[in-house]
Simulated assay, not measured.
Amino acid sequence: MKVLLFCCKGFETMEFAPFVDVMGWARNDYDMPVEVVTAGFSKTVISTFGIPILVDKSFDEIDVSEYDALAIPGGFEEFGFYEEAYDKRFLNLIREFERSNKFIASICVGALPIGASGILKGRKATTYHLGDGRRQKQLAEFGVDVIPDQSVVIDKNIITSFCPETAPHVAIALLRMLMGEDKAQVVAKAMGF
């Protein structure tokens, strides 16, 4: 199993790390065949708060057929997240994962490009919920049935969530989709969840 962890400029490292850690524990400690491949529009992606992250693949090197899931951490507008999150190439990548019936997991505002791609129209999802609720309103504008008071929402193959606090729960939910309930529970318990 392979997860493509796509990092748009301005992504949050706290929303990136749980996918690496949860899948890493599964692979290294419990011999589960799950691998995370990081990607971005360039080989070095500058995350929120200016931390550079060297990714495994640039956008042009991605072959969707090699992956079982797409993971999307959210990010900060002030650090340019939406410049790449709403890029037509990224929205097409999301659509390609959906057309291939693959899993898609997002944290916080990582749900917004999924909404913008059109694949959440008429489906249940959530996104960042604090403040004035504008991120949930933005998600609703894409025709999404926003569940405003549920921290993690799963609609068939798509996982969305509220905020950074939900990140490990989303990663564990994705592991559950990939490896099954029993195996995911072993990893979650070992990690203290």
Rank of each mutant, 00 (worst) to 15 (best):
101 N>H: 14
102 K>Y: 03
102 K>G: 08
102 K>T: 07
102 K>N: 09
102 K>W: 04
102 K>V: 03
103 F>T: 02
103 F>D: 06
103 F>E: 12
103 F>V: 05
103 F>N: 10
104 I>G: 10
104 I>W: 11
105 A>V: 04
105 A>R: 04
106 S>V: 03
106 S>G: 09
107 I>D: 00
107 I>W: 00
108 C>Q: 01
108 C>N: 01
109 V>K: 01
109 V>Q: 02
110 G>T: 02
111 A>G: 07
111 A>D: 04
111 A>I: 09
112 L>C: 05
112 L>Y: 02
112 L>H: 06
112 L>G: 03
113 P>T: 08
113 P>E: 04
113 P>H: 07
113 P>V: 06
113 P>S: 08
114 I>A: 03
114 I>V: 15
114 I>G: 04
114 I>E: 03
115 G>D: 10
115 G>Q: 12
116 A>K: 15
116 A>I: 08
117 S>R: 11
117 S>A: 15
117 S>H: 11
117 S>D: 13
118 G>M: 10
118 G>W: 08
118 G>N: 12
119 I>H: 05
119 I>E: 09
119 I>S: 09
119 I>D: 07
119 I>M: 08
120 L>I: 05
121 K>A: 14
121 K>W: 01
122 G>P: 14
122 G>Y: 13
123 R>P: 11
123 R>G: 11
123 R>Q: 14
123 R>E: 11
123 R>I: 13
123 R>T: 12
123 R>S: 12
124 K>H: 14
124 K>Q: 15
124 K>W: 07
125 A>G: 14
126 T>K: 07
126 T>M: 08
126 T>G: 02
126 T>D: 05
127 T>S: 15
128 Y>W: 15
128 Y>H: 15
128 Y>D: 01
129 H>I: 00
130 L>I: 01
131 G>Q: 06
131 G>S: 14
131 G>T: 07
133 G>C: 11
135 R>K: 14
135 R>Y: 14
135 R>T: 13
135 R>D: 08
135 R>H: 12
135 R>N: 10
136 Q>R: 15
136 Q>I: 07
136 Q>C: 08
137 K>G: 04
